[in-house]
Amino acid sequence: MNIFRLAGDMTHLLSIIVLLLKIYATKSCSGISLKTQELYALVFLARYLDLFTDFISVYNTIMKVVFIASSLAIVWCMRLHPLVKRSYDKELDTFRHYFLIGGTFVLALVLNEKFTLQEILWAFSIYLEAVAILPQLVLLQRSGNVDNLTGQYVFFLGAYRAFYILNWIYRYLTEPRFTRWIACVSGIVQTGIYADFFYYYFISWKNNSKLKLPA
């Protein structure tokens, strides 16, 4: 474990806490894409299959349980919670995310470290995570103004993978045989997708103005 990866995991955890806080405090999920939340639940379920078979560390196990539980809780909340589900922007959240699932699964069948079910699902979860934010970014552009907590949620979600890129550089430099091309390349693509959001987020922060994404 290195400081970059710990910072990345904590930033990731923070993004989930901010989202849970927004939904719990405002009893509303307006501005949040249910499709992105469903994709994240799928990412964690596909990636953490080894939760019960390979024990890495207490920290690793606890974080996996937290990520799976929180992502499922958010999806449940947005689909079934009587008060919250009313505020879901169903007509704005129209990204065809099934194409993302299909495309990334086919890619995982072709590009994986080993043609085994666990490795294919792991690669699938890495590729899917890289594009999972797209429905959310599209929804933010459609809904015009972005409330603070939602903006912070997306910002921390983008920042966590940027920390992971520093972690991969650090591990590449310090560990003789460290290569993890699938995660590295996919992580760079993932962080790149946030680039325009980071730009507008920085502008709004500098001008102390409301975050607005151009439609």
């Binding site: 792991w122 972690n167 993890r180």
Partner: peptide
């Protein structure tokens, strides 16, 4: 075959 990378990251 080639051993896949250890999945020690989240």
């Amino acid at each position: 075959g080639n051993s896949s990378s250890p999945k020690d990251e989240l």
